[in-house]
Amino acid sequence: MIHFLLLISRQGKVRLTKWYSTYSKKERSKVLRELSGVTLTRGPRLCNFVEWRGLKVVYKRYASLYFCMCIDPDGNELEILEIIHHYVEVLDRYFGSVCELDLIYNFHKAYYILDEILISGELQESSKRTVVRSVAAQDSLVEAAKEQTGSTISNIIAHAAK
């Protein structure tokens, strides 16, 4: 099982987090501090697996971002590396050539794509084509709703929340 996913920039800024296990705010900030220190200081030729607090952290660097997943000690590290790579490939297909700014300004899409791939810390969808189709369908629904109401997305959300 995946306990959490972190996307950390080379400067140590957290760009995305997804928690599948329960952690308090204090524990979360401590985890972020510890793991950013561990992953950012490791050499590029060292393996991408780290034992941490009785768990395993699997990470992979893509351009200026570190994708980190924490798994059970008996979890399969290579499978997790494949899941990370799968997520990055889907992001690449959706954004063209994904970069850190895409994730900063379109974080809601990055979360939606992640939710299409993983649910409750388990792999849900392994087909890139299916995930991209699902995200495209959601985009078309949002566009149709915008055209129908003539509103911005924030007005649609505010109206739906009432």
Results as ranks from 00 to 15, higher is better:
F95E: 09
R61E: 12
S140K: 12
Y112H: 15
H108K: 12
V88K: 02
S127N: 00
V142R: 03
A158M: 12
T149L: 14
T41P: 13
A145D: 10
P44T: 10
K60D: 11
I104M: 11
L123E: 01
L141R: 05
L5V: 10
L46A: 13
R45H: 12
Y112C: 08
L81Y: 04
S97H: 12
Y59C: 06
Q11R: 11
Y62I: 02
E122N: 05
S151C: 09
R61A: 07
K56A: 07
Y62S: 02
F107Y: 08
K146D: 06
T130D: 12
T152N: 14
L91A: 04
E100G: 06
L91E: 04
E79F: 13
L78H: 14
E27F: 04
K30C: 09
P73K: 04
Q138E: 15
D74F: 11
Y111D: 04
R45D: 11
T22L: 14
S29I: 14
I2C: 03
H159V: 14
G96N: 03
S21T: 04
V58G: 02
Y94L: 08
F107T: 13
S24V: 00
S29Y: 14
Y62N: 01
I156S: 00
K25S: 15
N76H: 06
R15V: 04
R15T: 08
H86G: 04
L32F: 10
V135E: 09
Y94F: 09
V90C: 03
S36D: 06
S127P: 01
E27Y: 03
L6V: 00
I71V: 01
E79S: 09
K13R: 15
S140F: 10
H85T: 10
V131P: 04
F49G: 06
V58D: 05
F107M: 09
R28T: 06
L91R: 00
K109S: 09
D102M: 06
L114N: 05
P44D: 08
H85F: 07
S134W: 13
L65C: 00
T149V: 10
A158Y: 15
L65E: 00
C99Y: 13
W52T: 02
Y87H: 05
L101M: 11
D102T: 05
I113C: 03
I113Q: 01
L40D: 02
T17Y: 08
R133H: 12
A137V: 14
S151A: 13
Q148T: 11
Y59F: 11
L5P: 01
E51Y: 14
I157R: 02
Y87T: 01
V131N: 00
S24R: 03
A160E: 11
L81E: 07
R53W: 15
I119T: 07
R42P: 13
S126V: 14
T39D: 08
F4H: 01
Y111G: 02
A158P: 13
R28N: 10
H3M: 05
D72S: 06
P44G: 08
S29A: 15
T17L: 05
I119H: 08
I156A: 02
S64E: 13
S36Y: 07
T41N: 11
V131D: 03
S151M: 08
H159Q: 12
G121M: 03
H85D: 15
E116G: 03
Q148K: 09
S127T: 00
S151F: 08
T149Q: 10
L78W: 14
V90M: 03
H159N: 13
R133G: 12
R133C: 15
E51R: 09
A161I: 12
L81N: 05
